[in-house]
């Protein structure tokens, strides 16, 4: 049941807590997080390993559910949805992972088209849209290449094209330059900046301070809590 409101922030978390069981002991990965992200924001989240950055991203991306608290995306409460309902909401979100997560035996084109396949788009349409998106990230000539035939930077561009192809209003990036050399990393940073400039909402989790410095808003996380929030 949607209770979406018109001028609500794109992302809104209130008192979100996530507690895991690890070897019988509870671990508070998120500890009462309050956060609002407006549309067309470019947010970087930094923090030490284990500070809760990735968990925050998983909760915002509906890959995980909070143990308590409220999470609204586009004004709709998502904290207590079923697995099937969360899958449907994930169609509003694009993911870019550190490890790229391209299907190894699919071509770049099919990888980019993957979200459209499960959204019920016809094969012809999804191939056309995927090809256009590959052209957008500068890989039109690599569309029929498989993962093994692409460099790390190219794989991450394919992953970004995949995140963009369904026209999701929110793009979540988990260490997008973490597995790249400095040159490829710089290219990805530039691409993300372009997307932000086009008005897309980006939340980027990173250890890369240079990348974080380019964001318009920077959050710092410590022990599952947001301990710093600055805008430039």
């Amino acid at each position: 049941m949607s209770d979406r409101t018109v001028d609500a922030p794109l992302v809104s978390l209130r008192g979100v807590t996530k507690v895991y069981e690890r070897e019988g002991a509870p671990v508070r990965a998120l500890d009462g997080v309050d956060l609002e992200v407006a549309a067309e924001s470019y947010v970087a989240v930094t923090g030490a390993s284990g500070s809760g950055k990735s968990t925050l991203l998983h909760v915002i991306g509906c890959l995980d559910t909070p143990s308590s608290g409220s999470y609204r995306l586009l004004g709709e409460e998502l904290a207590s949805l079923s697995a099937d309902e969360r899958s449907l909401r994930r169609r509003r979100i694009g993911f870019v992972f550190q490890a790229f997560h391209l299907a190894p035996r699919m071509t770049a084109l099919d990888n980019v088209a993957l979200p459209l396949r499960y959204a019920g788009v016809s094969l012809r349409d999804r191939r056309a849209r995927a090809a256009a998106m590959l052209a957008r990230v500068g890989l039109a000539d690599r569309s029929m290449h498989t993962r093994a035939e692409l460099s790390g930077g190219q794989q991450q561009r394919v992953a970004i094209a995949r995140a963009l192809v369904a026209k999701a209003p929110l793009l979540l990036c988990d260490e997008p330059t973490g597995n790249l050399d400095s040159k490829s990393g710089a290219e990805i940073v530039a691409l993300l900046e372009e997307l932000a400039a086009e008005g897309r909402t980006l939340i980027v989790v990173t250890h890369d301070l240079a990348l974080a410095a380019r964001a318009r808003r920077r959050l710092r996380m410590t022990d599952g809590r947001i301990t710093g929030d600055e805008a430039s």
Binding site: G61, L63, A83, D84, S87, L88, R90, R91, F95, H101, A103, L114, P115, Y118, A119, R162, A166
Partner: peptide, 16 residues
């Protein structure tokens, strides 16, 4: 498994 996880991440429903 990883590919199916990816499918879930990009919006596939478990029932699908």
């Amino acid at each position: 498994t990883a590919e199916l996880g990816l499918a879930l991440a990009v919006g596939a429903r478990p029932a699908q």
